[in-house]
Amino acid sequence: MSEIIKALNLKREFMVGNQKVLALKGISFAVHAGEFVTFMGASGSGKSTLLNILGCLDTPSEGEYLLDGISVKSMSKNERARLRNRKIGFVFQTYNLLPRTTALENVELPLMYNPEISSHDRREKAKMVLEAVGLANRMDHTPNQMSGGQQQRVAIARALVNDPVIILADEATGNLDTRTSYEIMALFQQLNANGKTIAFVTHEPDIAAFSQRSIVLRDGRITRDEVISKPASAADALAGLPKEEE
């Protein structure tokens, strides 16, 4: 299987005042097409820093990073913007939808920055992914008319709309209650079953249990990288939750 992500000895240092902070101290791993990986670790262990580099929002201070076979290290800002636009789907903890903008328009947003896609195709594609995340009847709703779970579904649809090679999610369930978290994880599992590659940052072990592989960071290094032989099914977990009060 082809390597979607290849990280070789990634390092990232920040200057805080005149002090160097080493957020990543040499990280190497690969993610293959179709994998569902979670990154775990304590707060400050470097998960977000790593995900930003993987998502081409940031560049490593040292080391080599290949996305879908392309070296990102020597790319210009504009080239990285283009790469994000064509190959990456982001999901954030705080949804980050545009306010006063309908779900459909929010989902269309990444395609707006792709001149190769006509406005007709853009609309069709956005409708399709909104249906895929179960929001066929919410297309005209603005974020303030939707629950957190629904907003996160819109955000996931937005991450899917450009057919990315990988979906990167940073604590995508961090703001949601257990039931809604499981619903979102069920959606991710379904997407993964349909072939999407997913890298998911979380610090909740029960969320990590839904993935196929768990990488644990500690203080800027990988301390564990293990395959989960029998991932839990989020759909089953959801069914096992106590019934909601009527």
Partner: peptide, 16 residues
């Protein structure tokens, strides 16, 4: 600012 950040994350270039 957040909107700008998001637009950049999904592929907007500085000139956009």
């Amino acid at each position: 600012t957040r909107e700008i950040g998001l637009r950049m994350a999904v592929g907007a270039r500085g000139r956009d």
